[in-house]
Computed example of a mutant assay.
Amino acid sequence: MIDPFRYEDGITPTVKTFFSQYLLQDLLDQITLKKALAVLKWLESTGPMPKACLICGAYLTGARLANTLARTASVTVLDQFPLVKNLLDPGVAYTTSIDDLPTGGWDLIMDTTGLGGIDPLMLRRFETPPIFVAEDPCSDGSDAVILQANQCYKLIGSMASERKGVLCTGGLSTKTSGTMTLMVEIMRRSMEDATRLEGVLYSTGSWEHFERLLFKEQNYEEFRKKLQRSALIVSSLMPVNPDEVIQTHVSALSSTITDFSEFRP
């Protein structure tokens, strides 16, 4: 029996339109959860958990990590775009200026700013924290130009922290490990797979230039609204479960931290 809450008649009753229960927001949540769990697992396995954390970058990955760590620690986020403050839980401190931050007292500093992000020289303003983590913006499908723009390992090399790690995310052969990049790839692959199913006329997703809504139009409310749409929509003569198609690609994604504690500047 077809779940009546997941489909509607097309132009005629012969064709049905199937909607995933996975929303775009759910995809983002699944991706950032994998990243956050990888960080927590590494922190728990390498030593004491931090109590004072500074996270550079609040967009999606940084916000999820900040909100997760804030359950057990004091967390401050540095990001130049004021609207991303909306992604943070009330208990997370936020600033747009590095000059507002104390130079010492941090147990953990983590960079999630990605390609073209924070300058390694800026980090010299801070006393060396016991723990430093950088997210590698590249992934298992990065091309030579993107790899060359990666400054993650320069950041790692600039810090003399006792515990150092690089957050790596892959499994989908994407050009970068950015959360939005990964979401779009999951949607693209899901559309292709759904279209190959017998009886499927076509499939589509809720496409939008989401980052432009947030950073160019500066419309946070519209950004959040657009993310509440179904991630996959399938027109078919036969019953289709779009969520099963999506889950295949969500499951292929993995995040781990590579330990670089032996890497000294």
Rank of each mutant, 00 (worst) to 15 (best):
E135I: 03
I156C: 07
G62Y: 02
T112K: 01
P102Q: 04
T61R: 05
P82Q: 06
T95Y: 03
L69I: 06
L123F: 07
D140P: 13
G114Y: 01
G57I: 03
T61S: 15
L65Y: 02
L147Q: 13
D119N: 12
G91W: 00
P120Q: 06
D143Q: 07
M122H: 04
R64E: 14
R124P: 05
Q148H: 15
L78S: 02
G157V: 00
T112G: 11
V84Q: 08
E162P: 10
Q148P: 09
P120M: 05
G105M: 03
N67D: 14
A160M: 11
S158W: 01
C152N: 08
S74E: 14
E135R: 10
S142A: 15
D140V: 09
D140L: 04
G165H: 04
D99C: 06
L115C: 09
Q80A: 15
K154G: 13
V84H: 04
C56H: 04
L69H: 02
A63I: 07
F81Q: 12
C56T: 05
L167A: 02
E135L: 12
L155T: 07
S161T: 04
A134I: 02
E135H: 11
L101C: 08
S139K: 06
I131D: 06
L88E: 08
V166D: 01
T72F: 13
G157Q: 10
L65H: 02
S97T: 12
L108G: 03
Q148K: 15
G57A: 03
V84R: 04
L88S: 05
A93F: 12
W106V: 06
